[in-house]
Design a protein around this nucleic acid. Structure first.
Length: 535
RNA sequence: GCGCUCGUAGCUCAGCUGGAUAGAGCACUGGUUUGCGGUACCAGCGGUCACAUGUUCGAAUCAUGUCGGGCGCACCA
């Protein structure tokens, strides 16, 4: 809708036109301050220019009126245009808001180490990534969701050690001495018991076998991770194991060297990448004195593999504490001969939780972290997804769990669901059949109904904008506002038994379509009725 | 110290490709249809958009600086 108007104006004026939604709907559906920018070039007052422009739109098929007010140009869409568009949307519900973008995108997110269950910070990146993924799919992008499994390095050794320590202390009741860092948490119990069955209990007393133990256990951890993500309706297309990459390292080094003979050099018996020349603060070690590649080496191979698969665009979602890492990866990408502008790294910031105004306590049982699955148990997957999708991902966030447990309008996810349920309920309450409703005309609506219809039809451009700007929160913001419009309309206007019953119900179906489509893009299933929870 | 980032109502946050009186929820105060789920709706209260300077017809939005908070600054991952 907006694209249509915007394209039309671009053609008419021969330039990009800033199109905005007026704060007050009485000004019209869209507005532009173009006259202000033209004023300087034309050396005329903005008011005069706006008036002239407005009158040039006489008898236009899309607009019923184009008015100039204080230098703004306000457009009101014709009811023909709006009602036809609404009718099309209802006839083609699966197509509503879809586009046919053709880019191939690789989206990497979560990528938490396979050493323990996901915590609340991971959940944010997971929800953010999955929402982007759903938006992109809807827009027609060929997008792949990928999880990078860091199944190599120290943390894997630590996993083996941690399981052994857990088993020796808690199962065999030995006195054990804990090192400075190790993993803790309830999940170790299942792994320890599984390991006894698989290997026998001797393995816990043989340090040389801890690696073997860890390599087996990481798959079990990944199962826990994948399952907890599935509970949030999040799924991945591909998993890439870090451990599988290192045998490609020599080839990748040669590739960088071939592209730029200064890319890789030896110093102090170590191999370095000259990342400083590409904007990093320092050069970085990629192979240690003893020949073991660093983590960065793995990531270089991984990104080389990504680019060799030939996507048009790459998106990484990382925890904000990794932001200092961006320049060195970009440097490597360039040394590999690829355009680092195609690699976009988005950050997901920290989360702190409150419950009834007090800081949420980390549980000892979980290992002094807040487990994602505990929060899901507490407020449900829908509320969790809503919270993380509704806040800008790259700024720190604090939220209170209790707000999302309430069963009333103060809880946004409840509020939106209730709007959808209201629509379903009233339609089932009406004596009219679906055919009768669908054949009604959406013309001659009063101002409030027209406004509601317009709001419902905005969904496609919200989707487009939310993905293009990577600002996923625009979608929940919109849904909340649409739900508010619906509730208000419902309150103000009687529907059943009036002569406009059919057309108003059709309007409601349209609103329901937008709500349902929007929710599904957030990985949330719309409810047809609300049940009151007793606790 | 350097880099990134944030600073908007008592609280949690939107708004930031510069544009018409600065928005929402919570909290607080008061109200609502002899009707479709009051699990809703309305109104009031509350802001020098951290501060300063600059650019502009116009700045919460852009630039520079100051102050304050967070994060990062490994051959860990």
């Amino acid at each position: 809708m907006k694209q249509r108007v915007s394209a039309l104006l671009r053609e008419k004026f021969g330039r990009e036109v800033v199109l905005e939604k007026p704060k007050d709907r009485s000004f019209g559906h869209f507005a532009t301050p173009i006259a202000f920018s033209l004023a300087k070039e034309l050396r005329q007052s903005p008011m005069k220019i706006a008036e002239e422009l407005a009158s040039s739109f006489d008898n236009h098929e899309i607009f019923t009126s184009v008015e100039s007010v204080k230098g703004y140009l306000n457009f009101r869409l014709s009811e023909n245009f709006l009602s036809e568009y609404a009718g099309w949307a209802l006839d083609n519900q699966d197509e509503f808001g879809k586009q046919e973008k053709s880019e191939k995108i690789l989206l990497e997110f979560v990528s938490a180490n396979p050493t323990g269950p996901l915590h609340i910070g991971h959940a944010r990146g997971a929800v953010y990534g999955d929402t982007l993924y759903r938006l992109a799919k809807h827009l027609g992008y060929d997008i792949t969701a990928e999880y990078y499994v860091n199944d190599a390095g120290n943390q894997i050794d630590l996993l083996g050690l941690s399981i052994a320590l857990y088993a020796r202390e808690n199962i065999f009741k030995e006195d054990v001495e804990y090192p400075e860092s190790y993993y803790r948490g309830e999940y170790l119990e299942g792994l320890a018991k599984g390991a006894i069955q698989k290997f026998g209990k001797e393995i816990f007393n043989d340090e040389s076998r801890y690696k073997e133990l860890a390599l087996w256990a990481k798959d079990g951890v990944m199962e826990i991770v994948v399952e907890s993500l599935a509970n949030l309706n999040i799924h991945f297309d591909t998993f890439v194991n870090e451990s599988s990459l290192y045998n490609d390292w020599d080839r990748v080094m040669d590739k960088m060297d071939a592209n730029d003979k200064n890319a890789i050099y030896k110093k102090d018996d170590k191999i370095w990448i000259a990342s400083e020349a590409k904007g990093d603060d320092n050069d970085r070690v990629v192979v240690r004195e003893d020949g073991r590649p660093t983590y960065l080496a793995g990531d270089i191979v991984y990104h080389n593999q990504k680019f060799e698969h030939g996507y048009d665009h790459y998106i990484n979602i990382w925890g904000a504490d990794h932001h200092g890492y961006i320049p060195r990866v970009n440097a490597a990408v360039e040394y590999l001969g690829y355009d680092s502008n195609k690699l976009e790294t988005l950050l997901s910031q920290m989360v702190s939780l409150l419950k009834d105004g007090e800081p949420y306590k980390m549980s000892k049982r979980a290992g002094n972290v807040i487990l994602m699955s505990d929060i899901v148990d507490e407020i449900g997957p829908d509320a969790l997804r809503y919270i993380f999708a509704s806040k800008k991902s790259d700024t720190a966030l604090e939220f209170d769990l209790s707000e999302f447990k309430k069963q009333d309008s103060s809880n946004p996810i409840f509020y939106i669901q209730y709007a959808h349920a209201r629509i379903k309920t009233i339609i089932s309450k009406s004596d009219l059949s679906e055919d009768e409703i669908m054949s009604a005309s959406l013309k001659n609506l009063d101002e409030n109904a027209d406004s509601l219809m317009f709001d419902a039809l905005l969904l496609p451009e919200i989707i487009d904008d939310a993905f293009a700007s990577r600002q996923v929160q625009k979608l929940p913001d919109y849904l909340k506002a649409l739900a508010a419009s619906l509730h208000k309309f419902y309150y103000d206007c009687r529907i059943i038994g009036t002569e406009d019953e059919a057309k108003l119900l059709k309007l409601f179906m349209l609103v329901g379509l937008s709500l349902r489509t929007g929710l599904s893009l957030m990985g949330i299933t719309a409810k047809d009725y609300m049940t009151k929870e007793e606790d």
